[in-house]
Amino acid sequence: MSRILLVEDEELNRTLVKAVLARADIEAVRQAEILDAGTLATARQQLASEPVDLVLLDMNLPDGNGLTLARELAAGDVAPAGGHPAVVAVTASVLPQDRAAAIEAGCDGFLDKPYAAADLVAVVAQHLPG
């Protein structure tokens, strides 16, 4: 079973993402275990202790910009348990330079907010192993 770390400070958004993924028509997405973190600090702790396959990473968090964590993962400054997960930036910042900054920081994908449920499921499916 795959594991997803959802890094999102808004509890309502975390609940929505979990509900969408639990109802996905793709079995691997539907069966994935979802861990969550509301801050970068919590995300770092979870990455160090729990192997995850995918990080859905909000950019605007109470303790910093999500790209900081993406850079730390790419540079090896955060040593995730179980290996390096795929990272997808999830943000309302949709300007081309924001997308480029996310990719430059080490993100493997980008999902614009607001997004359709089908887009979320497709991005998750694309970045889960197997």
Rank of each mutant, 00 (worst) to 15 (best):
M1E: 07
S2V: 01
R3N: 07
L5I: 06
L6T: 15
L6W: 05
D9M: 06
L12Q: 10
L21T: 07
R23C: 11
I26E: 08
E33M: 08
E33Y: 05
I34Q: 09
L35K: 05
L35Q: 11
T39E: 12
T39K: 06
T39Y: 15
L40R: 01
A41S: 14
T42P: 03
T42E: 15
V52A: 11
V55P: 01
L56D: 04
M59E: 05
N60L: 10
L61A: 12
L61M: 10
P62M: 10
D63Y: 10
G64A: 09
G64F: 13
L67A: 03
L73T: 01
A74T: 08
G76T: 12
D77M: 06
V78W: 08
V78P: 02
V78K: 05
A79P: 00
P80G: 12
A81S: 14
G82A: 15
G83R: 07
H84T: 13
V87E: 06
V87T: 11
V88C: 14
A89H: 03
T91G: 03
T91W: 07
A92Q: 03
S93P: 01
L95E: 09
D98M: 06
D98H: 12
R99D: 04
A101P: 03
A102K: 00
I103R: 11
G106D: 07
C107W: 04
G109E: 02
F110K: 00
F110Q: 02
P114Q: 11
P114E: 12
A118F: 09
D119N: 13
D119Y: 07
L120N: 00
A122E: 05
V124Y: 01
V124W: 00
L128N: 03
P129G: 10
P129N: 05
